[in-house]
Amino acid sequence: MPLLEVQNISFGYGHHTPFEVQAVKDISFAIEKGECVAVIGHTGSGKSTLMQMLNGLLKPESGQVLLNGENIYQNKKTAAKARFQVGLCFQYPEYQLFAETCAEDIAFGPKNMGLSPEEIRKRVLLASEIVGLPADKLDVSPFDLSGGQKRRCAIAGVIAMQPEILILDEPTAGLDPAGREEILSMIGRYRKDRGATVLIVTHSMETAAAIADRILVMNGGRLVLSGSPEEIFSESEALLEMGLDIPSFARIILALRSRGVELPSAYTLKDAARVLSDGLRGGGRL
C-alpha cells in the first residue's frame, strides 16, 4: 500500500465570479514510503493548490486523498490529524514567522500537537540541527535573521512536527545560488539520514533532477507527465512547450546522444561534467 494516494482530485477557485479558475483537474498519483518526488510546473499550474489538498487544509471538490489507506477528509478530526502527519511548508514560509524567538517559532507546531516540554525542546534542537540553523540563533527574534536563515527557521518549524511526509513548496524560491544549494543539500541529508518521504515543489528541472527519484509535471491544473528524471528529460520538446526549461548541459547531452554519440545520461551539472570528460578522455569522436 502506498503511503499517500491521490485519486482523481479537483479544485477550483472563485466559483460564480468572472475570475473562476479550475486550479486542479482530476489528478491521481501515489507516493511510496521513502520516496522523494518532485512536482514541477509553470507558474499558476496549480502546484500549491494540490499540496494544500494533501494535508487536510483544502477539501477537494471531488476525489479523495488516502493516507495509509485512510481518507483524510472523512471528518474534521481526521483532517486535523493529517496536518501533523503530512508536514506542509508553504511557499515563502518566512512570511509566516511570528514568535518572539526562533526556538518558540519552531516549537509552535509541536506545542499544538500537545507534546511535553522536554519533548518539544528536544525536537526544536533536532530540527534546527537538521536545517543547519546555528544554535546561537535560537534565542534571536526570527525577524532579525537573514533571508536564508529565516527560510531555514520556517522549514525547521515543520520538520519539528516529525511528519511522515514532508512537503516543501518551492523551498528555494527567491534564494541566491549558495542559499539554494544549501537548502537542497539539507533536504538530501534529511532524506538519507532518516529515510524520510519528501515531496518537493519547484519550477526548476535542474533542482528536480538533482533531488528526486520521480518527477510529476503539471500543466494547466493537470498532471501531464510522470516518471523518472530520465524519462521526463527525454520529453524536452513537450517541456519547452509548457514553459519549462531543461538546463543547457542536459540539452547538449541529449543532442549528442541523438547524433549517435554513446554517452550515459546525465541530468545534473556534476554528472554532465563527469560524463563529458570521460567521453573526451576516451579519445572518442567527441
Binding site: Q52, N55, L57, L58, A80, R83, F84, G87, L88, C89, F90, P93, Y95, Q96, F108, G109, N112, M113, G157, V158, M161
Partner: peptide, 13 residues
Amino acid sequence: DIIMSAQKARGAM
C-alpha cells in the same frame, strides 16, 4: 487566507 492556512498546517487551532 494564506497565512491562516500556513499556520493551520502547523496545527494552529
